[in-house]
């Protein structure tokens, strides 16, 4: 960069009273937010036994199916277990709310009416609020007191493309891009402090994902919505799978005597 050696001279007071406070406040707010999130996060709600049973019934069938081609069970026992599961799935006895009534509506439950799903969404919103509010307050604070401040000069040159990123809030087309404005410094911190939080609070902290969650306020609520599955449909599908596996069933001990005799050199 040509021209005078130093085009702008920054008061060291700006460094002491603006640059450091902004950085410090952001770090401290991040740490505070981490603990507030911890406080707000209620322990995951225990599911009632019926719900667990419903979820795990499918696993039972899957375990049985996985063993089928090389099954440890003789055919009669395998068929008994398989038949039992098929019957249970047909009758719906593993469903959380008991066997369905014959004329009950088959529409999938609306997640918005399910109080459990609502709880999950509210929890997501609460953490969102904890993320947003302090950031808005800090931004307001910087905008109000330090608007148009130039805080720091980067030690390396940059192209003009970075001007809008580094000099937000200062409308001077001629200023060197290396000068960083207060608002830009806030944004740099906002996106750049994750590494520091990870260092201070450990990798699984509530402060670091601030920037990620900022963009999608409903991200945290989404997985809970997906959980509202219609188990009666899944059970129906599983019945067919069980039927298929029955055909695949081979008892692992079916010809074990010939195998053993061969192994010990007694094959006839």
């Amino acid at each position: 960069m040509s021209g005078p050696a130093v085009s702008l001279y920054l008061d060291p007071q700006i460094r002491d009273w603006v640059l450091f406070p902004i950085t410090l406040v952001m770090i401290l707010v991040g740490i505070l937010r981490h603990y507030v999130v911890l406080l707000l996060q209620a322990a995951p709600k225990k599911q009632p036994r019926g719900a667990i049973r419903e979820q795990r019934a499918l696993v039972r069938a899957q375990i049985l199916r996985a063993t089928a081609p090389n099954s440890p069970l003789p055919p009669s026992y395998y068929n008994a277990v398989s038949q039992h599961l098929t019957d249970a799935f047909t009758n719906g006895s593993y469903l959380k709310d008991g066997p369905p009534k014959s004329d009950a509506s088959t529409a999938p439950p609306n997640p918005l009416t399910d109080p459990n799903a609502m709880d999950g969404m509210m929890a997501g919103m609460k953490t969102q609020m904890v993320m947003m509010v302090p950031q808005m307050v800090i931004m307001g604070w910087i905008n109000f007191f330090f608007q148009g401040f130039v805080l720091i000069k980067l030690p390396f040159p940059l192209t003009l493309g970075f001007k809008s990123m580094l000099q937000r809030g200062i409308e001077t087309p001629d200023m060197d891009v290396r000068w960083v404005s207060s608002l830009s410094w806030y944004f740099l911190n906002f996106f750049g402090l994750n590494g520091l939080y990870r260092l201070i609070l450990g990798s699984d902290n509530g402060a670091a994902d601030a920037s990620r969650d900022m963009s999608t306020p409903f991200a945290a609520a989404a997985p809970q919505m997906g959980q509202a599955q219609d188990y009666s449909k899944l059970f129906k599908a599983e019945q067919d799978n069980l039927e298929f596996s029955k055909g695949l069933h081979v008892w692992v001990a079916d010809d074990v005597e010939t195998r053993i005799l061969k192994k010990y050199g007694r094959a006839t």
Binding site: P74, S76, T258, I260, L261, R266, T268
Partner: peptide, 18 residues
Amino acid sequence: ASQTAAPAATAISSLDDL
């Protein structure tokens, strides 16, 4: 009771030997 087919008589006797 489980309708398991027993090995042939010759197999049983050689298994017994073994």
